[in-house]
Write a protein that binds this DNA or RNA. Structure first.
Length: 821
RNA sequence: GCCGAAGUGGCGGAACUGGCAGACGCACUUGACUCAAAAUCAAGCGGGUUUCGACCUGUGUGGGUUCGAGUCCCACCUUCGGCACCA
């Protein structure tokens, strides 16, 4: 046969698999497994990160099929989004055209990689038959009171010309373009994800198949705090200020209150007073600060007195009310109680403005003087100066004070979250239109289900700067009210693309359903996804949103699942020369050039061999060469012996034969476990390499006198083990070994435990924990025997001759340690 | 500051439950084949000492537990990631 030439065999088998519908999902099977890689944004070309995630998913999918599972392994496109719109403006093509051309190009690349997708289930989020259901889901949220419109200070990216959700702001910049985010007051659509905060937090416990770091990140993001809300009546006004605190035990130490600049009461408090001008100026100044400056610990705490006082409900004391730049309207109640002795921020603030300080918690057995404190005492302790609560430890005081407040109507226990509601409106064109109509008479009216989809009009002119053309598209904008038939107009904002991608894994289970987004029966057969694979950058964003969607769909009775992804593999990045691949650094390697030069099988093998999947991987051209060499080595071996093996002779196995069988079955055991249990593909591949090395050693030893049965078994096992990793090469070699049926329709081989049994093992002999000798002894020798053999060894005998043996530890088949004095 | 992960040869990485550190691959060195090179095959390859039999040393640092520690415990250093004026 000819030399290994991937450019011929790879397209050949890809065509064969496609024509014979190899990877169509079998819905009737009993054993089901859903393998899913995060679907890509159709940016134009695949990069190495894509190649990595698809390679991981494909190994699992192919392996599990061989293990007898019916595997759902679909692919689709996260196809709405800003880059299409920007590219369209730049190149004067329609976003749809740009997007669909990219999808075609990337699909071609995925096929060239030999990934085993069921293409009949492909979904594209920008297609009307998909976004119809995205809109339907919005209406479901709306009906359940989970979608609402409100005016709020929101994150605005001046470069993308649109608002962003909190999750989409990284280090004060836009997650997409990095531009510094500013604040705008806008009326926007939100999803009430905060209603699900507690469940999103608690159910992380169910996700034992997720990496801990992702769970911890979500936990931090949700940011649960337990404490109390306390109401402070305002002196001279019939109103009160509510604060949130996690330390109700420090209530008697409150010497002032601080309001956020945006707090609705600020204006009322200062109206018509001598403080009005100063406070208003301060509020103006504070609101102008960017979010980054405002929330930075570096920014100096500033405040201004409002002239108003309120009453500490516990002590009856009057305390001044200030406005401060470090209090955030978006967290808690937008007002905090100032306890300078026990909170570091309050401590600094009180020092700056000469506010009084009172110690109310002391460390056990110690006294604290307010005047002598160099920093706040923030730990828990024993209460003093706290009326009837004196002598209580903090934890007890927290409960008792809260109960006391509650009894008197002055406060109540409260749990607060850092998580904010999800802002889903986007002021751009290339997204799913929000299915809402505004009627002059009826107000906000949801589009009736039968009118879906609200089609995104094609005939638009996109403008430089990115303002949405929908407002000016009369045919789209002007409509009639579904209620009263009167004059009305459509919502012109589109949905955050994360909305579209929060439910796509359900659609794959029933992609052509035209009555519902998916049927419960089909979804329940597959969801939760058994193995989800994707980048860590979605640790919060996509993964949190999808969890939220699944819970809402569950509550509405559309799915039995409470969590969307049972197991999650967060794959590492692909770097080169220690840095992220980027055009500016000139260190980009594309999947195309690898396929062209070495073939897809080599590329897949390298990317799985170079590092465990969850770790970052450094691309190495030399390493790729090594994998290519290995595949050629396998090719030559099979090619050389294939014909000969056709006529077995039935000869008895000798020692060398046994050694080869042992190596092959040991390899098979390890490969099976590494793929199945640990997802350590790098060590699985190294185990296959060991089997190949053993086969070469065998042929060197036996020359032409090989045992044909043993060799045939070895080569077939090697080819079967390679099938998930290098599917084209394995297919070709499988045929070469005389098989008619595809290697990908074979069962995964079972290792033979008897082949792993050997008569003798080498053990280490230690004296006081140091290896002094290695001995070959019968397998499974008991401790007594091991000791006898070890002591009979001349070297060991000499070393222990004049010593006293205190103890002997024998680990069967491993080592023996003789402790001497 | 808080939370989390990780530090092993020249490099990527193995060592799964405490049991022979460095599997497998890359790079390098040597030998075979060749007129020669490449390819291929074979062998060597942590550091140090060596009378060539072996000995000492070694998994970020310092302690500890244990017959035995890369693995467990304590303290620290470094790197990376997340959160951070969140009351």
């Amino acid at each position: 046969m000819a030399d290994y030439n991937p450019s011929i065999i790879e397209p050949k088998w890809q065509k064969y698999w496609e024509e014979n519908n190899f990877y169509r999902t079998d819905e009737k099977a009993q054993k089901k497994f859903y393998v899913l890689e995060m679907f890509p944004y159709p940016s134009g070309r695949l990069h190495m990160g894509h190649m990595r995630v698809y390679s991981i998913g494909d190994v699992l999918a192919r392996f599990l099929r061989m293990r007898g599972f019916s595997v759902l392994h679909p692919m689709g496109w996260d196809a709405f989004g800003l880059p299409a719109e920007n590219a369209a403006i730049k190149n004067k093509v329609h976003p749809a055209q740009w997007t669909y051309a990219n999808i075609e190009a990337m699909k071609k690349q995925q096929k060239a990689l030999g990934i085993s997708y069921d293409w009949e289930r492909e979904v594209t989020t920008c297609a009307p038959d998909y976004y119809k259901w995205t809109q339907w889901l919005f209406l479901l949220f709306y009906k359940r009171g989970l979608a609402y419109k409100k005016k709020a200070a929101v994150n605005w990216c001046p470069s993308c010309n649109t608002v962003l959700a909190n999750e989409q702001v990284e280090d004060g910049g836009c997650w997409r373009c990095g531009t510094e985010v500013t604040t705008k007051d806008l009326e926007q659509w939100f999803l009430r994800i905060t209603d699900y905060a507690e469940r999103l937090l608690n159910d992380l416990k169910l996700l034992s198949g997720w990496p801990e770091r992702v769970r911890v990140m979500q936990e931090n993001w949700i940011g649960r705090s337990e404490g109390a809300e306390i109401h402070f009546p305002v002196k001279g006004l019939d109103t009160k200020i509510t604060v949130f605190t996690t330390r109700p035990d420090t209530l008697f130490g409150v010497t002032y209150l601080v309001l956020a600049a945006e707090h609705p009461l600020v204006e009322t408090l200062v109206a018509g007073t001598e403080h009005e001008a100063e406070v208003k100026a301060f509020v103006e100044k504070t609101r102008k600060l960017s979010e980054i400056v405002r929330t930075s610990t570096e920014t100096e705490k500033e405040g201004v007195f409002t002239g108003a006082y309120c009453i500490n409900p516990a002590s009856g004391e009057e305390v001044p009310i200030l406005v401060g730049n470090y209090v955030l309207m978006g967290y808690g109640t937008g007002a905090v109680m100032g306890v300078p002795a026990h909170d570091q921020r309050d401590f600094e603030f009180a020092h700056k403005y000469n506010l009084p300080m009172r110690v109310v918690v002391t460390p056990e057995g110690k006294e604290l003087e307010a005047e002598n404190l160099s920093e706040a005492y923030v730990d828990e302790g024993i209460l003093i100066n706290s009326g009837k609560f004196n002598g209580y430890p903090s934890s007890k005081a927290q409960k008792e004070i809260t109960a006391y407040l509650q009894k008197n109507g002055w406060g109540e226990p409260k749990v607060t979250y850092r998580l904010r509601d999800w802002l889903i409106s986007r002021q751009r064109y290339w997204g799913a239109p929000i299915p809402i109509i505004y009627c002059d008479r009826c107000g906000t009216v949801p589009v009736p289900e039968e009118d879906l989809p609200v089609m995104l009009p094609d005939d638009v002119v996109l403008k430089e700067g990115g303002q949405s053309p929908l407002k000016e598209h009369q045919e789209f904008y002007l409509t009639s009210c579904p209620n009263c038939g009167g004059k009305a107009h459509r919502e012109t904002d589109t949905m955050d693309t994360f909305f579209c991608s929060s439910w796509y894994y359900f659609r794959y289970t029933d992609p052509h359903n035209d009555r519902l987004p998916f049927s419960k029966e089909k979804a329940d057969a597959w969801v939760p996804v058994d193995q989800y694979i994707g980048g860590i950058e979605h640790a919060i964003l996509h993964l949190l949103y999808s969890r939220f969607f699944t819970k809402v769909l569950h509550d509405a009775g559309y799915t039995a699942a409470v969590e969307p992804f049972k197991r999650l593999l967060a794959q590492g990045m692909v770097n080169k020369d220690g840095a992220k691949m980027s055009k500016s650094k000139g260190n980009v390697v594309s999947p195309d050039e690898i396929i062209e030069k070495y073939g897809a099988d080599t590329g897949r093998l390298f990317i799985l061999f170079a590092a465990p999947p969850e770790k970052d991987l450094d691309w190495s051209d030399r390493g790729v060469e090594g994998c290519y060499r290995f595949l050629k080595r396998v090719w030559r071996l099979v090619d050389h012996y294939a014909d000969e093996l056709a006529h077995p002779t039935g000869q008895a196995a000798d020692d060398a034969d046994q050694t080869l069988r042992h190596a092959v079955h040991a390899s098979l055991k390890k490969v099976t476990e590494d793929i199945e249990e640990r997802h350590n593909f790098n060590t699985a591949i190294s185990a296959i390499m060991e089997a190949v090395n053993a086969a070469y050693n065998y042929t060197n030893e036996k020359k032409d006198a090989i045992n044909k049965e043993i060799m045939a078994e070895a080569l077939e096992t090697i080819v079967l083990m390679l099938a998930p990793f290098a599917p084209h090469l394995a297919e070709e070699l499988w045929q070469r070994l005389g098989h008619k049926e595809s290697v990908h329709l074979q069962s995964w081989p079972e290792y033979d435990p008897t082949a792993l049994r050997v008569a003798e093992v080498e053990i280490a002999v230690q004296i006081n924990g140091k290896v002094r000798s290695r001995l070959t002894i019968p397998t499974d020798a008991d401790a007594k025997t091991m000791e006898q053999i070890a002591l009979a060894d001349k070297k060991i005998a000499d070393l222990v001759a004049d010593k006293e043996i205190i103890k002997v530890i024998a680990v069967p088949n491993k080592l023996i340690n003789i402790v001497v004095r």
